[in-house]
């Protein structure tokens, strides 16, 4: 960033770094993240973050988007790797339709990111739902 330094040492690695960083920040102005700026600003302001620079807000948005995309990609891999339950030859179209984000895949994917998601393992609609058949007879 220092003009004098750049004149004296144009092949300096640090100068290249700074140029690349400046270009990256400039490219953020043209980039439109999926998470809108207003939403990011709202959550940032909620946690005591102050910065008037829109580029840095976008950087945070991009970081969050990347994190969520990584988690979702891992969950999608889990979903694809699971053996198909319906073994019907003509259900190829159905297999594509079954690409649905489930709690099971998500919890497996999030385990790698240090997040332990636990959901209830079953829903008991009657008091005797989880009991053995023998004890139910009694």
């Amino acid at each position: 960033m220092n003009g004098q330094t750049s004149h004296q040492q144009p092949k300096d690695g640090r100068h290249d770094d700074d140029t690349a960083l400046t270009e990256f920040l400039a490219s953020l102005m043209d980039f439109t993240p999926t998470i809108p700026d207003e939403l990011v600003e709202h959550y940032l302001a909620k946690s005591g973050f102050q910065c008037p620079d829109t580029r840095l807000t976008r950087l945070v948005a991009v970081a969050t988007q990347k994190f969520i995309a990584d988690v979702a990609t891992d969950a999608l891999q889990q979903c694809k790797a699971r053996p198909a339950v319906i073994k019907d030859k003509r259900d190829k179209q159905q297999k594509e339709k079954r690409l649905i984000l489930t709690m099971e895949d998500l919890s497996k994917a999030l385990r790698e990111y240090g997040v332990n998601v636990k959901h209830q393992e079953y829903f008991a609609d009657t008091p005797s739902a989880g009991l053995d058949p023998a004890s139910r007879d009694e």
Partner: peptide
């Protein structure tokens, strides 16, 4: 955008 068709 990743390829999911739906979500719970």
């Amino acid at each position: 955008s990743i390829g999911y068709k739906g979500a719970e």
